[in-house]
Design a protein around this nucleic acid. Sequence first.
DNA 1: AGGCGAGTACTTGCAGACGAGTATACGGGG
DNA 2: CCCCGTATACTCGTCTGCAAGTACTCGCCT
Lengths: 214, 214
Amino acid sequence: MAKRRKVGNLLALAVLSTVAQRPMHPYEVMSLLRARDKDADMEIKLGSLYTVMRNLARHGFVEVAGTTREGARPERTVYRITEAGRAEMVDWVRELVSTPQPEPRRFRAGLSVLAAVGPEEGAALLRQRLELLERECGARRESLARDVLAVPRLFLVEDEYELAAHEAEAAWVRSLLDELTSGTFPGLAEWRRWKATGEMSPELAELAERGHEE
Amino acid sequence: MAKRRKVGNLLALAVLSTVAQRPMHPYEVMSLLRARDKDADMEIKLGSLYTVMRNLARHGFVEVAGTTREGARPERTVYRITEAGRAEMVDWVRELVSTPQPEPRRFRAGLSVLAAVGPEEGAALLRQRLELLERECGARRESLARDVLAVPRLFLVEDEYELAAHEAEAAWVRSLLDELTSGTFPGLAEWRRWKATGEMSPELAELAERGHEE
DNA sequence: AGGCGAGTACTTGCAGACGAGTATACGGGG
DNA sequence: CCCCGTATACTCGTCTGCAAGTACTCGCCT
């Protein structure tokens, strides 16, 4: 697991999940990402976005759908997601959600496209994560208990912090999981239907379009 | 604040704090970092370490202390930290500890060299962080409350996660701060003395040497 | 005595990230 | 009506990170 992705940049995941809506040109992707303040945490650099899009194309995850030009504006290259691209996206989400990584941003990125898998699978992935997380917390707790006998706490604060962060994450995952399995998470039925039929309710579709801050 | 560092890689901070002990060649730095399993979270690549060391030298944060050669082994270049290097390190720690960043690893890295500032300043930095953190949590909580009226929760899980993570961090910082200000944090006197005189107790020095897992 | 696995120490080459630059359109204030 | 700021849309060049490679040594097994 954690196999090396052809395009490893997390920005690529955001891009994939955005062009999944409909064919777009890179700049448009950026605007959409900005609109749903995705760019706040995921520092988005325009230069990188063009590189990433080209790389995605190189590996067959997206393909050129054509080029358009309005007036004397620069030519825009419109990209479309491929089947391989969709598969990559889903597979990536699976990994990001199910497997804890030292880099917490990866989890965040995974969560932000959680909708790409169904609620049942989502719950399963979270369950797996929780288990790994608990195992890791246990190990860290033990090693910390051992170290504290030999090393002043001053040199262990970072480990204490890390442990606290992991425990907090575990608690959060547990509570989300509860909502998912008990069925109290709102919108479960819609989510499932959307997954099955590929159809979104009109309001939902509109939301996706304008990206919830108008 | 958050000014652009001449050498931005976090690995550079670890390197600085290691050569601060005594002059070393890059490979030795690596071994020490490995010994204190710093490398677990901070993925250390040898190649990067050499690059980083060269960059630190280029900007005057370290300087070549000489080269040695044992038998037919490759030549080793020994580096020594400069005054500018020490200043950069302390300044960097200040920033990392006091200012919350989207990337949590930065805080961890800052904590791991917290000893470079005194306990009083450490507490002040943490206090500042806590304040900023609380402000940010408030803002996030509000914007989440607003969004939840318009957007299905499915598309807000990442924001909920982020908020939870920040709140957990705030709680942890608060508890550390309490220990620091109430004086219940163990080893405070030693820490202060070390800061003032630059002297470590012998056991401490030895610990730093072998890096607490023998 | 020979071979191989693990450790030491460093270099190179290339892919990827991104700051800075380019060029045009459009609306509004002076 | 002209200039400026801002938005659209993309490119280029540089700098950096790092996987892979190099080269030698030591000790163990056989």
